[in-house]
Design a protein around this nucleic acid. Structure first.
Lengths: 247, 247
DNA sequence: CGGAAATGTTGATGTGGATCAAACCAATTA
DNA sequence: TAATTGGTTTGATCCACATCAACATTTCCG
């Protein structure tokens, strides 16, 4: 009588951890894989890890061993200069992959910090390499994920190198909105998980400038701001902030 | 009498194009491969392409098909915004890999333009995928190359987001110097292949600021500048420009 | 060669965003 | 309910870099 019960417990546990039943499978590693192939993934991704707000998944200089797929929650990645200045290099949400910076030198080169209580799937890198030699679609997909990270960073470079404060913040909001949308959340209303200072650090601005610009957007009827809550009122207007000359 | 002659011509040609005899094999794809494996590479990299100064290897939106290893010469990669503003996202020299931005969306997302007459090895991406499924060391190496590109871009983000003009230029010069060194050229004297405007675009500065900062470094005895020729006089001094507060 | 175009330098002035400073607000904790 | 803490807003002022402008130098090419 107890054996079946135990079995069921294990089943439920397996189910909970499986890529095959993950709601993110369409935007995470399993994209395009057959059932067979996803089963292989399930064997590879055998750990889930909770990360409390403020804790990190990995830190700069730490030995690299695994990639991490964000299962739930919200992360920032940061770089720190010798003199202590630091910079946010990205914000990451469910379905995003973390840790690819570590492959090249076999140690991480940034910190991945949870901005709220979160959960990641641990993907042992050696296993991923193995499996992607066997499963073509997986190899292909993994390469795309890395490539897209490169392209994402290109975009940030453009933002930091060529845009004015208002453009940066507009681009930031539109990008967040788009990413929430593609995850099935509202495009027009969401909660920021990061502080003004973190936004500023990401955008190469000071927190006061971020705050002032939010206020200006609000006055101009583009958005509604109330602390961390953002409503996008006029998304076309926001878009038109990009690439319009200073006025 | 003519057969051997022809054969020799072909040999020389093959030799010229072969990864196995390439002087860059220690910093390009062949790193760590056995003779056997390099022979396979030779079959994959069967085209060389000359690119004249000003011409591009690929352009944004173009269909992606191959990666390119810089064999000789010097390149910049650039992004263009809708409104025409453009931004240099990198400078690339012998041994560097170009085109990885194209994998994710199957089309290139930047322009790769030769800053001097150059030569690239064409690496058909499908073949690279195939081969890296067979040859573990190649897979590993390719992943490292992509990862390092991510890390390089992190560095640029830090530079653009957190450094002042002098720091940016010092970091730029030190980086160039280091890359020339690792290719066997002088660490202390080299020729810039790009204009002040291109440097400025890369560093998020105007060309006038670049020019002024060069002059200042010269006055301070850190470098010697004569148009495109740069001599690094006091590399420790240059390093100390980084992360020192405005003075 | 010589003239035009591109590139680089330097000066004078302007400005977007940084810095400094003071409240304000929301969430905890006592 | 008050006190504390971390985050946000807003105003006043400052400065690093942009902009505008004039000129110098190099490169290109008929």
């Amino acid at each position: 009588m107890s054996a079946p019960k135990l079995a069921r417990v294990i089943d439920i546990h397996a189910l909970k951890n499986a890529c095959s039943s993950c709601s993110l499978r369409e935007m995470c590693l399993p994209i395009g894989l057959s059932q067979d192939e996803i089963d292989k993934l399930d064997q590879m991704v055998y750990t889930r890890k909770r990360v409390k707000r403020g804790d990190s998944v990995y830190r700069s200089e730490e030995k690299f061993g695994s990639l991490y797929a964000v299962r739930s929650g919200f992360f920032k990645t940061t770089l720190v200069m010798e003199d202590g200045r630091d910079q946010v290099t990205g914000f990451h949400m469910a379905g995003d992959m973390l840790g690819m910076d570590g492959i090249g030198a076999d140690q991480h080169s940034c910190n991945a910090v949870a901005l709220e209580d979160s959960e990641v799937c641990v993907i042992p890198y050696g296993r991923l390499e193995e499996l992607s030699r066997e499963v073509y679609v997986l190899q292909q997909h993994f390469h795309k994920v890395m490539s897209r990270e490169i392209v994402r960073e290109h975009g940030v470079m453009l933002l930091l190198g060529s845009m004015r404060a208002e453009e940066r913040l507009a681009a930031f909001l539109l990008n967040l909105s788009q990413r929430f949308t593609s995850r099935g959340y509202s495009a027009s209303e969401f909660n920021l998980r990061m502080t003004r200072e973190e936004i500023g650090s990401y955008l190469g601005l000071k927190l006061e400038t971020v705050s002032r610009t939010f206020s200006k957007f609000q006055e101009d009827g583009l958005i509604g701001v109330q602390q961390k809550n953002i409503r996008i009122v006029d998304s076309e207007g926001l878009k038109s902030v990009l690439g319009r000359d200073p006025s």
